[in-house]
Design a protein around this nucleic acid. Structure first.
Length: 484
RNA sequence: GUCCCCAUCGUCUAGCCCGGUCUAGGACUCCAGAUUUUCGAUCUGGCAACACGGGUUCAAAUCCCGUUGGGGACGCCA
């Protein structure tokens, strides 16, 4: 049962009460990275003690979102493992045993205070400018008497008897921490329905599952103090803790409070066609930096370089612009074929033809200007069905010289039989330049009319790519139409 | 309100632990130029920060204290 001193057993312990949040995604990523970096183990534990809000469906989505990011776990509810079950709702016996242990040792007590009474007291304390917490009423009850009341069916909770004094622990990112337990108050271990609370279940499970490092957001700092006391009372050595500074929204509030706003959940990035490696890369850099100073890092390098010693103590703001840039970089780093394959579902979903060749041509044409695959279909649609010309574009085609050029070009295109001599973008470009030479047109006044004729717009990808993206037939027709 | 945490360009950060090499480096954004075809693409260049006040020291972004600012926690949620 003893843990090897340098063995790393990490865990990610989400509660299935919502989709995977980007903040949680980062926590999951850091845990995963640390486990992989140290050749350790990652445990996925489902903290579904909140029966009201937890659902199996959300649990599955959570796992799907983690998988999308490329994060795998070694032990968990789906894959099993030596410490199964990995769902807290299935581990009641573990918590009951621990609670009994604490009760018998006099480190916990039964509390018969009602919810309403507690709420009233909290309000009063708050109004008096005190830190609102449990006032210890039932702690003074006689244990035997309390036991009898419980026996007779009186509803009660089990609270931990906070011993007082200063709680100390060494945080791997923050250094030595000291928290005065007087600011904590006796907290609930088991609810009146017998279900454990977060802090209790967490400690019982981390201990049982031999977790060596707990890496989580620093909104848990006070919980860690509670948990450290629990470990002590239980006579179990505590794991090492590392508290991550939170990710903040652009308005500097906790990111996880921005429920309902765009870009809050991991799946939104998947649905928008971001490459998972891009989100992972971005999240990794929100609070950690590579010793190399590089920004674009793939999973392999992340695993190789990641460690807690370069994790930042100060909170980071989620900068959607930088993510966009980074996503584009990852997109462009993909081989064209692979990217086109990934693009097909997005084309299909947009009601566009999704055959491999056309997908490849479109992807080639537009990949430089997009950050995610979801941005591809609108561009393809516009290519297929150009809108009306704006004044500036119309002016380009209004030029006499441009018309003559396009007319010549159209003649050439029509003269070469398509089936015997297929033509690609590069050849088209040569043909265009040939026409230009004959008519004495070059530079902007050569390429711009062709661009407008083909797309109806002044800006866009390179002409050769555009030609390939629409195909010879369409291109020829558009050049001819524009020449009239 | 009480307690805790944090503090380098607008943003992510390097440097801070082991003071001098920092006239503070990189990246995103923005701006300019270049690419004798455009661009939200590419390349090059530029703007831009050690929150403030005290110490300590020959010397402080780096160490200490305070102020200010920001964030978090104060549940039978996690």
């Amino acid at each position: 049962m003893r843990l090897e001193s340098n063995e790393h057993r990490l865990r990610f312990a989400p509660s299935p009460t919502g989709r995977l949040h980007v903040g949680s995604a980062r926590t999951a990523l850091y845990n995963w990275l640390l486990a992989r970096h140290h050749a350790g183990v990652l445990v996925l534990r489902i903290e579904d003690t909140d029966a009201e809000r937890s659902t199996r469906d959300l649990e599955e989505r959570l796992m799907a979102d983690l998988h999308w990011m490329g994060l795998e776990w070694d032990e968990g509810p789906d894959v099993g493992g030596p410490h199964a079950p990995y769902r807290q709702s299935e581990r009641a016996a573990v918590y009951a045993a621990r609670a009994r242990q604490l009760l018998e040792a006099g480190r916990a007590f039964r509390c018969f205070c009602s919810d309403e009474l507690l709420a009233t007291k909290r309000e009063a304390q708050r109004a008096a400018g005190e830190e609102p917490h449990y006032d210890g009423t039932c702690r003074r009850l006689d244990a035997g008497e309390a036991g009898r009341r419980a026996q007779s069916g009186e509803t009660h909770t089990i609270r931990f008897h906070v011993p007082g004094g200063v709680v100390r622990f060494d945080d791997l990112v923050r250094g030595p921490m000291e928290i005065d337990s007087a600011t904590l108050g006796d907290f609930v271990l088991l609810r009146s329905n017998g279900v454990p609370t977060y802090n209790f279940a967490c400690v019982a499970d981390d201990a049982e599952m031999q977790i060596s490092h707990v890496v989580r957001g620093d909104d848990h700092l006070y919980n860690t103090a509670r948990q450290v006391m629990l470990y002590a009372a239980l006579g179990i050595p505590a794991p090492q803790f590392a508290h991550l500074a939170l990710i903040l929204d652009e308005d500097r509030s906790k990111l996880s409070k921005r429920e309902g706003r765009e870009g809050t959940y991991a799946y939104e990035y998947r649905d928008a066609g971001f490459l998972p490696g891009a989100l992972v890369n971005f999240l990794a850099l929100l609070g950690w930096s590579s010793p190399s100073g590089d920004d674009i890092l793939d999973l392999e390098r992340l695993v190789q370089e990641f460690d807690l010693d370069r994790v930042s103590k100060s909170p980071a703001i989620f900068d959607a612009r930088k993510l966009r840039w980074m996503a584009g970089e990852h997109l462009r780093a993909q081989p064209l074929e692979a990217l086109a394959e990934r693009a097909r579902p997005f084309l299909r979903a947009a009601g566009l033809p999704d055959d491999p060749e056309r997908a490849a041509a479109w992807t080639a044409a537009f990949k430089d200007g997009i950050a995610c695959l979801g941005e591809l279909p609108p561009r393809v649609r516009e290519l297929l069905h150009p809108g009306p010309l704006d004044a500036e574009a119309a002016a380009v085609l209004g030029q006499e010289e441009a018309r003559r050029l396009l007319d010549t070009l159209a003649d050439r295109l029509e003269r070469v039989p398509g089936d015997t001599q297929p033509m690609d973008g590069a050849q088209f470009k040569r043909l265009l330049q040939e026409c230009g030479r004959e008519l004495g047109v070059r530079g902007k006044s050569l390429f711009m009319p062709a661009r407008v004729a083909l797309t109806g717009r002044l800006h866009g990808p390179e002409l050769a790519l555009l030609f390939d993206a629409m195909g010879r037939e369409t291109a020829t027709k558009r050049i001819r139409d524009a020449a009239r």
